[in-house]
Design a protein around this nucleic acid. Sequence first.
DNA 1: TATCATAGTATGGTATACCATATTACCAAT
DNA 2: ATTGGTAATATGGTATACCATACTATGATA
Lengths: 254, 254
Amino acid sequence: MIGQSYLSPEPNADTKSLMKSSEPPLQKIDKAPQTLRDIVQDRLREAIIDGRFAPGQRLVERPLCDQLGVSRTVIRETIRFLEAEGLVEILPNRGPVVSTLDWAQAKQIYDVRLLLEGAAAATCAQRHGQNFAPELDRALNYIKTAMGDTEWANLLQATTRFYELIFKEAGHIVAWEIVQRLNGRISRLRALTLSTRSRDGKGLKQLTAIHDAILSRDPNAALQAVETHITAAATAAQGFLKDAKAGLGKDLQL
Amino acid sequence: MIGQSYLSPEPNADTKSLMKSSEPPLQKIDKAPQTLRDIVQDRLREAIIDGRFAPGQRLVERPLCDQLGVSRTVIRETIRFLEAEGLVEILPNRGPVVSTLDWAQAKQIYDVRLLLEGAAAATCAQRHGQNFAPELDRALNYIKTAMGDTEWANLLQATTRFYELIFKEAGHIVAWEIVQRLNGRISRLRALTLSTRSRDGKGLKQLTAIHDAILSRDPNAALQAVETHITAAATAAQGFLKDAKAGLGKDLQL
DNA sequence: TATCATAGTATGGTATACCATATTACCAAT
DNA sequence: ATTGGTAATATGGTATACCATACTATGATA
């Protein structure tokens, strides 16, 4: 999430022509000293989202310390953060576990996404600037190529990037953060639905519809396109969760 | 957020007629051993929301340890949690400060609230059960009485309760959690707008309109009512933030 | 007097050790 | 087989020490 450009674009490219660059004498150095916590947070979050920690699995602190080579303090702090994000739950007297998901929650998450993504697409359709079209094209093409990929993480990232563009262009930063957090909680579900839906061409077709509606500056069409896309995704997801529930009795698997 | 009903509703009401109560012989004791962190979290969150810690104010760890009588670990973990909630920001090499708010963010928060609360009200209008009407009546009455109160916290809590009822009845738990978190970030703004808007009668009138639309099972009217209510609140809020900005040059004050 | 340098202080970041408690598993005794 | 106890494990909570950095104040030098 946070880049690692500690220094200004030109670190010290001009030692001879000092004070020659006209406008800003010196750019402020906004060092973002990537703290250990941040690294561990990203690492753990990614591991959970990628499914390397299964839902329901316990996250025992000291082993995590050994694996990541950091102290307990750091681990505990990141667990607190991920708990607030909804990726981790704390069982009383048992400690943190990877959050599980049932259909009731997933359904609500898709509902909220529907509202926020629909609004973002509509706003974006009205407001997008001139250099936005090629960017959205590129994002859509990324998705197209990622569909043939075997690595589902790429496809997930590509679609995420697609929506990120839309939200950012609409100026809906807060909403995008919310959606991202929600997506973290249904990441495994998303991976499943995306990979299956990429086999039939429907998923891509729906995303293309969103793309077209936005670029033709038709807010209502954009809203509609998002609606059909998310509804389809939710339906597919429901199938998975229902299966998992039937198979195991608990909803731990997804 | 978490109740403190450690024990079952009926602790041991029937010692004579043991095993007589037909279905559950004994209810499971779901003890929620309120951990130190939870207490400190609630305490600090409340302090920030109440404004006892001003926005931009530094939250120095060791003094907080002394004030609350807990160790640094606990303090740091709660700060991580509140950071994820958006109530606290971490300045590099300076440590945590209470988050500040500018109008760009506040506007977006009101936008998201508009979407989520509108949807909840509409759904609630369709689905609310039979014993819901008196509850909503009661909530509205609470607001009415709280308007005469000098303690603005009561009014804030009353309106929160009003919306909570709507969200819960609509089954939008996830959305409600999101809205609550957003409300935390604009709590001082809400307090200001609520108190000023309670002097003219408009705020109450708008809430009554929501109440009526829901109880008459008219989703569109409910959506409309929420829209006017939040739009008005946002406009009032904008006035405050603009003032603060003009007065101070920075947006630290709110 | 003005500037520079140095030391001191405060704070965040990290690591480690310790204790109390709750849970679990295992083992022994009846 | 059920009961009871004990040890192991893991967590919550605490305390402490160490280092790096930022800010501050003091003093020395030009």
